[in-house]
Design a binder for these strands. Structure first.
Ligand SMILES: [Mn+2]
Ligand SMILES: [Mn+2]
Ligand SMILES: [Mn+2]
Ligand SMILES: [Mn+2]
Lengths: 220, 220
DNA sequence: CCACCTATTTTGATTAGTCAAAATAAGTGT
DNA sequence: ACACTTATTTTGACTAATCAAAATAGGTGG
C-alpha cells in the first residue's frame, strides 16, 4: 500500500497539474509539500521507478495512469471527509482542511463508500471543490474568478480555492462562501483593488490576488 | 506529537496491564505489536527516556502518568471510532477494529469530542469495551466469563474481549453479542467444553478458551 | 553448584523520508 | 561566445522504526 508520503506527493502533483497535461516543476512540488527541492527530486525518482509518475529531468513530472488513479482516490477521501466534518459534525469550514490532510490517509475504501452514501453522494465539498466519483471522474469545469469576470453582472460564488484557515475565516466573515450572490462593482487594475456588492447591499474591498481565489458563475 | 508507533506501544502497554499496576513483559508487548523482541526493547528504552514509561530491565514496563494519559486518549479514540463506524455508518462489528487501528492516530481531539457528542457520550463500544471519558477515567469493573461463571443461572453478555474478525463473525452468527441473554448448561473441564442455552432455547457448544473471552453478568 | 533453557538485550544492517550544502545544467543577456 | 542567475540534482548525513542473529542474564532442575 502507498505510504502517507507517497499519497501526499501524488495528490499534490494532481492538484498542481490542474487536470491538464502540463508538467509540474520540482520547485512547485517541493513548495506544495513543504520539503527542500532535493527531497522532492529523491522521492520523485522513487515514484518514477514505481511507475506512478513520469519524470523528465530538469523539466518536471506528470502522473501515470496508475499514479493518477491513486491520487484521485486520495483527493476523493480528502474532500468527502471535509464534507462529513462540516455536514455531520458541524465543524467550521476553515478548519476541516487540516483535519482531512491526516484522515485522507486513514480512511479505507469501505468507510469512504459509506461516508459517500451517508452524505448523499455530494458533488462538491464545503469549499466548492469538486469531489471525484468512485470511477475517478472529476468535474473540471473552468470558472471565471472575481479578478477576471465581467463587472456589473449578478454572480454566484461556486468555489473558494484556498485552504488556509485565515483566508477562509475572512471569507466566511465577509459572506463569501459558495452559493452566496453578489456582483463586482469596479476593478482598478492599477491599485489592484476589487470592489464587491453583496445582495444585501454591503460593499467589500478585496485585492486582486484574493479575488482570483474566488470562482463565480453568472447567476441563472 | 507522538508518532503512530509511539501511540501503538503506549496503548498496548495499557491494554496488557489491564488497569492494574503489574509490569508488562517484553515478550507480551512485542507479541501484541507484532514486532521482534529486540525492536520492543529498543523502543521501550526510547520511551523511557521520554518519560512515557518506566523500564525495569529484564522484568518489564509500566506506564508513567504522562504515558498513561496519552494511552487513554488513543484508546478513547479507538473505541469511539468503532462506535461511530457501527452506529452511524452501519459497519459490521467484526470489521471495525482494523479500521479503528488506523483512524485512532488520525482523529484530532476536536473531532473526537464532536464524535462523542454525536453518539450521545457512549460508555461502551460495540464489543462492550469501556470507553475512557475525556478526563481519562475508565470503568474497570471485573466480570465473570462463560468459562468461570456459575452454571444454570440466567446471564447477560456484557463484553466480548477479542478483536479478530473470525471470532467476532462466529460470535455474531451464534447470537453471542453484548446484551444477549443465555445460561451455561454444563461445563466439562476434562473435555474443555462449555454448553450454552440461548433464550430461544438454542444450544451452542464452545471451548473454554473461547468461553473465557465472553464476559457476563447475572441478569437483573 | 553447575549445566541448561528461555526471555531479554545487544549488535549490525536496512528502509523510508528528510535536510544542508555543494555541484551542475539551462537559460538570459550582453 | 561568455559570464550570470536560477532551478534542479547530487552527495553526505541524520532520525525513526524495523529485523536477524549473536550475546547475556536469570532462573530451574538435577
Ligand atoms: Mn495528507
Ligand atoms: Mn476542500
Ligand atoms: Mn493503531
Ligand atoms: Mn472494541
Amino acid at each position: 500500500m502507498a505510504t502517507v508520503a507517497v499519497e501526499n506527493y501524488l495528490k499534490h502533483v494532481l492538484l498542481l497539474s490542474e487536470g491538464g497535461e502540463e508538467l509540474v516543476s520540482m520547485g512547485d512540488l517541493a513548495g506544495a509539500l513543504a520539503v527542500v527541492p532535493g527531497t522532492a527530486t529523491a522521492m520523485v525518482k522513487a515514484l518514477a521507478d514505481e511507475g506512478l509518475l513520469e519524470h523528465q529531468p530538469r523539466l518536471g513530472v506528470r502522473l501515470t495512469t496508475r499514479g493518477r488513479r491513486i491520487a484521485l482516490n486520495v483527493l476523493r477521501k480528502h474532500r468527502l471527509v471535509e464534507t462529513f466534518l462540516v455536514e455531520t459534525l458541524k465543524m467550521d469550514w476553515s478548519k476541516v482542511h487540516a483535519e482531512a490532510e491526516q484522515l485522507e490517509h486513514a480512511v479505507s475504501d469501505e468507510v469512504l463508500d459509506r461516508l459517500d452514501a451517508l452524505l448523499g453522494h455530494p458533488r462538491q465539498d464545503p469549499h466548492g471543490d469538486p469531489i471525484p466519483n468512485r470511477a475517478g471522474k472529476i468535474d473540471s469545469q473552468v470558472y471565471a474568478t472575481l479578478a477576471t469576470c465581467a463587472t456589473g453582472r449578478r454572480l454566484r460564488i461556486v468555489r473558494v480555492t484556498e485552504q488556509s484557515e485565515e483566508f477562509l475565516r475572512f471569507a466566511e466573515d465577509s459572506g463569501l462562501r459558495p452559493g452566496a450572490e453578489l456582483s463586482v462593482g469596479e476593478r482598478n487594475l492599477v491599485s489592484g483593488l476589487v470592489t464587491l456588492t453583496r445582495t444585501d447591499g454591503g460593499k467589500i474591498a478585496l485585492g486582486v490576488a484574493a479575488a482570483g481565489k474566488i470562482l463565480v458563475e453568472p447567476r441563472g
